[in-house]
């Protein structure tokens, strides 16, 4: 089966998931992002690469934050940006996902940035667009959020350049997390030898160890000697019910506090994809503490998204 993200020459055509992308392409994206970091510090924070191109942010699931970072990235590349929040209720009135996409194709958009609540929805769209349109996955269901995974490894690489000698721990709701899946694939593809997940059994998907991670159910053991601690967001609706008894108990057992962070290496960095639930998955003193790189993640997120768009937007 051909990888739907690559063209016949093995070049990136769409960015749908990190899984299955060669290390060479991930490194190319990260290296290119490195060159975009400086652009944001200049007087004129724009380069003319995508001048005259139209980037369309299609969000079937609302997310102002992610949409904004893609919008800034596209604008810094001089693209025109259209934002479209597809109300799910208008979908239930009869317009299908393909109707929506066909309309935007007819408007001559060049690049689609898509978020959708269903796993695989962005693959589905990528299969139906004409050849000249590139599709970027901005998060589909529980499946993938590749630009987040890339910006996370970009951040790791900036603080801990020796990727081949790292111990990374992901903490929290892996079961429902597209971010976790993309982070795991990005880390393992780039050669990080030890990736751990720490969570109660109710928040881990079946066969998670087959993704190449070690499974822990205890913070003390799981964080021991970690270089990087990646926290995952716990959705409100999952804090109490049949998956977890309460947010309080979760914070007590799996929330990241200064005390639990002390199990990791003293120079370990703490990351979070945002938005954070302070006092549920992470204590404020850690989130705002000296080991936190949560805000740099946001800054790098723009450079990484610029890099992805710049690589997809060029070439005949």
């Amino acid at each position: 089966m051909l990888n739907p993200q690559l063209d016949a020459d093995g070049k990136l055509k769409h960015l749908l998931t990190i899984e299955g992308l060669p290390k060479k392409i991930l490194t190319q994206i990260l290296d290119t992002a490195e060159t975009f970091v400086g652009v944001a510090e200049r007087d004129i924070k724009k380069v003319p690469l995508l001048r005259g191109k139209t980037v369309c942010n299609i969000f079937f699931e609302n997310s102002t934050r992610t949409r904004t970072t893609f919008e800034i990235a596209a604008k810094r590349l001089s693209a025109d940006v259209i934002n479209l929040n597809v109300n799910t209720s208008s979908q239930s009135k009869g317009e299908t996902i393909l109707d929506t996409v066909d309309n935007l194709i007819a408007m001559h958009a060049d690049m689609f940035v898509v978020r959708h609540g269903q796993s695989g929805a962005v693959h589905f769209i990528a299969q139906h667009v004409p050849d000249n349109i590139s599709v970027i996955n901005a998060g589909d269901g529980r499946h993938a959020h590749p630009t987040q995974g890339l910006l996370d490894v970009f951040t790791v690489r900036r603080y801990k350049p020796d990727m081949h000698n790292l111990r990374v721990a992901l903490v929290g709701d892996v079961l429902h997390s597209r971010v976790a899946r993309s982070e795991i694939h990005a880390l393992t593809t780039l050669g990080v030898p030890e990736v751990r997940v720490i969570a109660p059994k109710t928040l881990l998907p079946a066969g998670v160890e087959k993704l190449g991670v070690q499974v822990f159910h205890d913070m003390k053991a799981g964080l021991k000697d970690a270089d990087v601690v990646m926290m995952l967001r716990l959705q409100n609706e999952r804090m109490s019910g049949a998956l977890l008894p309460s947010a309080q108990e979760y914070f007590k057992t799996f929330g990241l506090t200064q005390e639990k962070l002390s199990y990791a290496k003293p120079d370990a960095i703490v990351m979070h994809p945002g938005p954070m639930n302070r006092g549920v998955e992470i204590d404020s003193s850690v989130a705002d503490g000296s080991q936190s790189v949560i805000l740099p993640q946001v800054t790098y997120g723009i450079a990484v998204r610029m890099a992805v768009m710049a690589i997809l937007g060029g070439g005949a």
Partner: peptide, 15 residues
């Protein structure tokens, strides 16, 4: 099927 494939694809599994 609730297994490796469903976990990779982020599809809700049926054990």
């Amino acid at each position: 099927h609730d297994g490796e494939i469903a976990s990779r694809l982020g599809l809700k599994g049926i054990p």
